[in-house]
Computed example of a mutant assay.
Amino acid sequence: MGPSSTPEAPDSSLVPDSSSVPDSSPVPDSSPLTGSDLAGRVALVAGGTRGAGRGIAVQLGAAGATVYVTGRTTGSERSEMDRPETIEETAALVDAAGGRGIAVQVDHLVPDQVSALVARISGEQGALHLLVNDIWGAEIEWNRSVWESSLDTGLRTLRLAVDTHAITSHFALPLLIETPGGLVVEMTDGTDEYNAATYRVSFFYDLAKAAVNRMAFALAHELAPHGATAVALTPGWLRSEAMLQAHGVTEATWRDAIAHAPHFAISESPAYVGRAVAALARDPEVARWNGRSLSSGQLAQVYGFTDEDGSRPDAWRYLTEVQDPGLPADVTGYR
């Protein structure tokens, strides 16, 4: 297509109207996902070193999937995040959960590395059924206007949050659409509805997360003719390794942080959003969500899974109705 060409408008029937609500009839309970629900399925969790990516990889493994886990931190080599978690640790957790974890060091800003990764998956597995774009790993300057922020840091944020997703989709989707029923999950922070009404405390962070939500919408139009589905998915207040460390707690003792951060009571483990992805992956009617912005708490109500403590935290409803209006912390009715 030349620079002066006007692209044909996509068929609006391929993506549900954003105001429509798909059938939310519950399916059989899926918490925890164990056994072989996803046996024979191949997933790529791009950015699976820690946090949501690790939680997703492990829960896909618990459902029997083969999971390629990519990231920059491996062995003694660390990304700019300078954290100790590695892709090999995540792959081992996938194995322990009952799946097959395959760790591959990849910088998703380097097209040749991503191309080689997809060629490897094709050669070893012959198919790709699920792509989870969870790449992030950026330094954020909070509470600074665009003119007060470091331009280098801000643009690096956009490259790590946006370019990586686009590069990975460019190379991975031709393999994914070879098998009907493929699923792409664009991981972000905040639903479309929440982000449209809420400044996300940094120009560059706000822009990055809005862009990823829009990516899922665009991919939905492009994938639907091939029988594939794309969604944006956000966890709630995630108890990532970094978040736990910041609050001086562990996953076993996370409730101790509520004393100094009362709203932390709505937080959720990485397993929760992992179970959301696994539930989507095994749903034969997943196309009902095509192009939608979803949350772990929302999907828990539909698919019946829970967090590891047996609760169903609904963080984005809580933030809107309790935290943001400045009300006292009270998770009654929200988990």
Results as ranks from 00 to 15, higher is better:
residue 319 L to R: 15
residue 160 L to K: 11
residue 317 R to V: 09
residue 293 S to M: 13
residue 333 G to L: 12
residue 280 L to K: 14
residue 65 A to G: 11
residue 230 A to L: 09
residue 151 L to V: 15
residue 167 I to Y: 08
residue 311 S to N: 07
residue 137 G to C: 06
residue 67 V to W: 00
residue 317 R to M: 13
residue 252 A to Q: 15
residue 84 P to H: 11
residue 208 A to P: 05
residue 83 R to I: 14
residue 312 R to W: 09
residue 118 V to N: 06
residue 144 R to I: 01
residue 259 A to D: 03
residue 87 I to C: 03
residue 194 Y to I: 04
residue 105 Q to I: 08
residue 205 Y to N: 01
residue 37 D to M: 00
residue 6 T to Q: 01
residue 203 F to P: 02
residue 142 W to G: 07
residue 220 A to C: 06
residue 335 R to T: 02
residue 117 L to T: 08
residue 4 S to M: 10
residue 21 V to C: 09
residue 88 E to Q: 14
residue 247 H to S: 03
residue 294 L to P: 03
residue 211 A to W: 04
residue 319 L to P: 01
residue 28 P to F: 12
residue 100 R to Y: 13
residue 138 A to F: 09
residue 143 N to W: 15
residue 33 L to G: 12
residue 229 T to G: 02
residue 264 F to N: 06
residue 290 N to E: 06
residue 125 Q to S: 08
residue 13 S to L: 09
residue 140 I to N: 09
residue 254 W to Q: 04
residue 3 P to H: 14
residue 31 S to M: 10
residue 4 S to G: 09
residue 253 T to S: 09
residue 171 F to H: 15
residue 33 L to H: 06
residue 236 G to L: 07
residue 36 S to W: 03
residue 280 L to W: 12
residue 304 G to I: 14
residue 181 G to I: 02
residue 124 E to P: 00
residue 224 A to L: 01
residue 178 E to P: 01
residue 329 A to H: 12
residue 75 G to R: 06
residue 22 P to D: 07
residue 313 P to R: 01
residue 150 S to C: 12
residue 12 S to A: 06
residue 190 G to E: 05
residue 136 W to V: 00
residue 64 G to V: 10
residue 91 A to L: 10
residue 173 L to K: 00
residue 318 Y to N: 05
residue 284 P to F: 13
residue 70 T to Y: 06
residue 109 L to Y: 02
residue 261 A to I: 03
residue 272 Y to Q: 05
residue 279 A to E: 10
residue 189 D to C: 13
residue 75 G to A: 05
residue 34 T to K: 15
residue 126 G to C: 13
residue 85 E to Q: 15
residue 200 R to F: 09
residue 13 S to K: 04
residue 17 D to P: 07
residue 19 S to M: 05
residue 152 D to P: 08
residue 60 L to M: 02
residue 332 T to W: 11
residue 6 T to R: 10
residue 241 E to L: 06
residue 109 L to R: 13
residue 221 H to I: 00
residue 107 D to G: 10
residue 170 H to F: 15
residue 318 Y to P: 00
residue 292 R to L: 02
residue 187 M to H: 04
residue 322 V to L: 11
